[in-house]
Design a protein around this nucleic acid. Structure first.
Length: 351
DNA sequence: AATACGTGGTT
DNA sequence: TAACCAAGTAT
């Protein structure tokens, strides 16, 4: 099967099976002349970095409802954007999202650059996202290489080199199949294929548009590709978080430093997270031990977070953090681990 | 090149 | 239950 036929077979499949997404201009619409909004494409692509479509859907809708244009987002308060991103994870994305919006609004007249090279210069836009926005929003013949494409191409071409060493080779192989016509549809088609047919564990080869040319399937090794280096075990870290409620219902919270874990997000003041944390109460009070701990897993460690709660009178001055009035505190503004702590403390207080 | 960086669904 | 995995980027 020639490369052009392989490409055509996938586009043909995409025309019939493209998934519907709030940010996507489907193949039919595109054919009718509808062009995607680059802002929507960029926003969705950043949200989709290492994140499932299901998790992104509602966040995308809330963001675009609240900030319909890149100019609106650029003018937003940092805390509002971080709060709206809360729960989606990888919070550097939200910080870079704002930086990027402000560069586009301030230095590019509110229009996203339409070339991969220019997009690559923007904060939070790396090789994948630059190609994705160039291809999907501007129909540039750029090649996307994400986890889906790595899997699909390593199987199609029987690439046995383990990741991430195989990336350059996979980039070349993927590039050979990228068409000059409909590159935006093609980019989305390969990713849809990887997400729905050519899945990690049990690929549905029987209904795959590439079942004939697929070398891994011919060899019967499709489920073993791509090869990857084994992952390191996650250590367990321990920490203590302090939830202080003032008599008027305000909660003691702090804005975390801009860099590092949960950077820029709201959180409960607490100890360091390590082997044996020391008590670090942010305000003098009668702290009560909550008889349960939050268990939460981050990318590279497991956390067991002990909780202390206290009721404090109005007028106290905390050593760390500041009191957020009851009507300005939304638990949904917290990153998940901090929201878990709030939920658990609330449950324990009722018991 | 290797590591830091979240979370929730699936197996 | 625990490992695996998802439309990666920055350093």
């Amino acid at each position: 099967m020639r490369d052009e036929q392989i490409t055509a077979a996938l586009l043909d499949w995409y025309d019939r099976h493209a998934r519907v997404m709030p940010w996507r201009v489907g193949p039919g619409e595109r054919r009718a002349g509808v062009r995607p909004d680059p802002y929507a494409v960029w926003l969705s692509e950043v949200m989709l970095q290492q994140t499932t479509v299901a998790a992104v859907r509602d966040y995308f809708r809330r963001f675009t409802a609240r900030w319909p244009t890149v100019g609106d987002l650029a003018a937003a308060e940092d805390g509002d954007v971080m709060g709206e991103w809360a729960g989606l994870g990888y919070y550097a994305r939200a910080r870079n999202l704002l930086k990027c919006a402000r560069v586009v609004a301030g230095e590019h007249g509110g229009r996203f650059p339409d070339s991969r090279a220019e997009l690559l210069k923007l904060p939070g836009i790396g090789p994948y996202t630059a190609s994705a926005v160039a291809a999907i929003a501007f129909d540039r013949p750029e090649t996307v290489l994400d986890g889906n494409v790595e899997r699909v191409i390593s199987r199609l071409r029987l690439v046995e080199t383990p990741l991430p060493a195989a990336k350059p080779e996979l980039t070349d192989l993927a590039g050979e199949l990228t068409p000059v016509e409909r590159p935006g549809d093609y980019a989305q088609a390969v990713m849809d294929l990887g997400a729905t047919i050519c899945t990690p564990k049990s690929p549905a080869c029987g209904i795959c548009p590439w079942r004939e040319p697929c070398l891994a399937r011919a060899a019967g090794v499709q489920a073993d590709l791509p090869r990857k280096a084994p992952k390191k075990a996650k250590p367990v870290r321990y920490g203590i978080a302090y939830l202080a409620r003032r008599a008027d219902g305000a909660w003691l919270l702090e804005r975390r430093p801009e860099s590092g874990l949960l950077g820029g997000m709201l959180g409960w003041p607490g100890s360091e997270w390590g082997e044996a944390p020391e008590e670090a109460p942010p305000v003098a009070a009668e702290w009560q031990d909550v008889g349960a701990e939050v268990r939460h897993t981050f990318t590279h460690f497991h956390l067991r977070l002990a909780l202390r709660v206290a009721e404090v009178p109005e007028g106290v001055r905390p050593e760390r953090g500041s009191f957020l009035p009851r009507d300005r505190f939304r638990p949904s503004d917290l990153p998940t681990v901090m929201r878990k702590a709030f939920d658990l403390a609330a449950t324990a207080r009722r018991d």
